[in-house]
C-alpha cells in the first residue's frame, strides 16, 4: 500500500543527465549574456553618435537604431524561452513520468531532485531576464534628455518677434496675433474681416508635440520623490500627476479640456492599479 515498503529507487543515469542539462543551460545563458553585454556596451557610444547627428526633429534615426537593438535583445529572450521549454521543461516532464509514484518513498528522492533542478533552472533564467531589463534600460538611457525648456523659450521669443509683423493678404492691414498658436488657425482681419489662415512655424508646431515631455521634465523631481518613497506613496504620485498636467496646460492651454480627460483616466488607472507596494 502506497509503495511504503518498496525498494529504494536508483537511477544514476538520470542524475547524470540532470547535472549535464543544468550545466548546458547555465552555459547557454552565460553565452547569451556575454553576447548581450558585448553588443550593448559597444552600442552605447554608437547610439549617442546617431542621436547627435540626427537632424530629424523626432530623432527617428535614433529610434530606428534603438528598435534594431531591442529586436536583437528580444531574439535572445525568445531563444532562451524556447530552450527552456524544449530542453528543460520537456526533459523534466519526461523524466517525471518514468519515476515511481511521488508518494512512495522510492520516488520521493528523485522527485525532489527534479524539483530542485527545475527551481535552479528557473532562478538562473530569472537572472537572465533581470539582465535583459537592465541592458534595455541602459540602451534607452544612453542619450541625455533633450533640453526642451530652452527650445520652448526660443519659440516663445521667436513668436514675440513676429506677432505684430503680419499683414492681411487681402487689404494689407496690420494683424496682431493675440496669442501663440501651435496649429494652423483662421485669424480675422480687423479691417476687412477676411479670414486669413495663420500657419505657425515648424518650431512652434513642435512645441505641441513636445509639450508633454517638457511638462514631465519640469515635474521630474516629483515623480522621483514618488519612486523613492517606500512603500510607494500614492499621494505623491497624485501630486506629480496633477502638477504635470498643470504644466502641460500652461504650455498648451488649447488642449486643457482634452488633457483633463486624459488626467482623469491616468488617475483612475493609478488608483485601480494593483501595483501598490
Amino acid at each position: 500500500m502506497f509503495g511504503l515498503f518498496d525498494k529504494k529507487y536508483h537511477n544514476p543515469e538520470l542524475l547524470e543527465m540532470i547535472g549535464h542539462t543544468q550545466e548546458r543551460w547555465f552555459a547557454f545563458l552565460d553565452k547569451l549574456e556575454n553576447r548581450m553585454h558585448e553588443m550593448c556596451t559597444a552600442a552605447v557610444p554608437e547610439i549617442k553618435e546617431v542621436f547627435n547627428q540626427d537632424t530629424d526633429p523626432y530623432k527617428r534615426a535614433h529610434g530606428h537604431m534603438l528598435m534594431g537593438l531591442h529586436g536583437q535583445i528580444n531574439q535572445m529572450r525568445q531563444k532562451a524561452n524556447k530552450t527552456k521549454e524544449e530542453s528543460i521543461f520537456y526533459f523534466i516532464d519526461r523524466a517525471t513520468t518514468q519515476l515511481p509514484d511521488f508518494i512512495s518513498s522510492a520516488g520521493r528522492e528523485y522527485h525532489d531532485k527534479l524539483r530542485i533542478f527545475r527551481l535552479d533552472c528557473i532562478n538562473r533564467h530569472n537572472i537572465f531576464e533581470e539582465k535583459i531589463a537592465w541592458y534595455t534600460l541602459m540602451l534607452n538611457n544612453a542619450v541625455e534628455e533633450q533640453d526642451l525648456e530652452t527650445f520652448y523659450q526660443e519659440q516663445l521669443a521667436a513668436f514675440e518677434d513676429i506677432r505684430n509683423k503680419f499683414i492681411c493678404k487681402q487689404c494689407g492691414g496690420n494683424i496682431a496675433i493675440a496669442k501663440i498658436f501651435f496649429i494652423a488657425t483662421y485669424i480675422t482681419c480687423p479691417f476687412c474681416q477676411t479670414q486669413n489662415t495663420f500657419t505657425p512655424s515648424t518650431g512652434a508646431q513642435m512645441v505641441l508635440h513636445q509639450a508633454r515631455s517638457l511638462a514631465e521634465q519640469r515635474t521630474a523631481h516629483l515623480l522621483k520623490a514618488y519612486e523613492a518613497s517606500k512603500p510607494k506613496n500614492s499621494q505623491l504620485y497624485q501630486q506629480y500627476l496633477r502638477s504635470m498636467f498643470d504644466e502641460w496646460n500652461k504650455i498648451v492651454p488649447d488642449m486643457a479640456t482634452e488633457n483633463e480627460k486624459f488626467y482623469q483616466r491616468m488617475l483612475h488607472d493609478h488608483t485601480n492599479s494593483i501595483n501598490h507596494y
Binding site: 553588443m39 559597444a42 552600442a43 554608437e46 553618435e49 546617431v50 547627428q53 540626427d54 530629424d56 526633429p57 523626432y58 527617428r60 534615426a61 535614433h62 530606428h64 537604431m65 534594431g68 537593438l69 513668436f159 513676429i162 503680419f166 499683414i167 492681411c168 493678404k169 487681402q170 494683424i175 485669424i187 477676411t194 479670414q195 486669413n196 489662415t197 495663420f198 500657419t199 505657425p200 512655424s201 515648424t202 518650431g203 512652434a204
Partner: peptide, 30 residues
C-alpha cells in the same frame, strides 16, 4: 553588426520625407 545597423538607421527614409523647417506664414484663400 552595429556598423550595419547604424548605417541602416541613418539611411532609412522617414515616412513623409524629411521635415523642412518653415517660418510662420499668413495666407488667404480667394
Amino acid at each position: 553588426y552595429l556598423e550595419r545597423l547604424k548605417q541602416k538607421a541613418i539611411s532609412q527614409e522617414n515616412y513623409g520625407g524629411e521635415v523642412k523647417a518653415e517660418e510662420a506664414k499668413m495666407e488667404v484663400r480667394d
